[in-house]
């Protein structure tokens, strides 16, 4: 019985070497870094700009950074926030973001922060797909 194995390959068809989840991890920690390590400078730069802008706007709007989960919705929002990687961890350490949403724009800001994290997860998975050759 024949068995098939998936070999990671770059878009050019060459076998990729090293830790296959490296770009995924790098892309999660810093938006666009997963593309930078594969020399996709423009794509990585655009992703960093878009996700970084969204995160900064969320903080500037006094959006809430979730620190714990008391309900299922909080849990989902926390998962979204964690998607921002180092941006989230550094912002938590610096005490940025509001604890309680008090104005309408803070509610927008909270959504911006969660969605920035979700977009970053998409970008990191894209970097992984580029590295494994699933995407050009």
């Amino acid at each position: 019985m024949a068995t098939s194995t998936t070999k990671p390959a770059t878009a050019s068809g060459k076998k990729s070497s090293g830790f296959v989840y490296g770009p995924l991890l790098a892309g999660w920690l810093i938006p666009g870094a997963g593309h930078f390590v594969q020399r996709k400078w423009v794509r990585g730069g655009m992703l960093l700009l878009a996700i970084g802008t969204m995160f900064v706007l969320g903080i500037a709007m006094q959006g809430k950074l979730y620190t714990g989960a008391s309900s299922i919705l909080d849990m989902l929002a926390l998962a979204g926030d964690l998607g921002s990687g180092l941006f989230y961890l550094i912002s938590r350490q610096l005490g940025l973001g509001a604890d309680v949403v008090q104005v309408t724009t803070a509610d927008y800001g909270t959504r911006f922060l969660v969605f920035a994290g979700l977009l970053n997860v998409m970008a990191a998975v894209d970097a992984h797909n580029l590295y494994t050759g699933r995407k050009k």
Partner: peptide, 20 residues
């Protein structure tokens, strides 16, 4: 402290999400 209008926030959101 940045307080955009709802429409401005929608446009900013759409630009960033569209790029990604």
């Amino acid at each position: 402290n940045y307080s955009p209008s709802h429409f401005t926030a929608v446009l900013e959101f759409a630009v960033c999400a569209g790029i990604v």
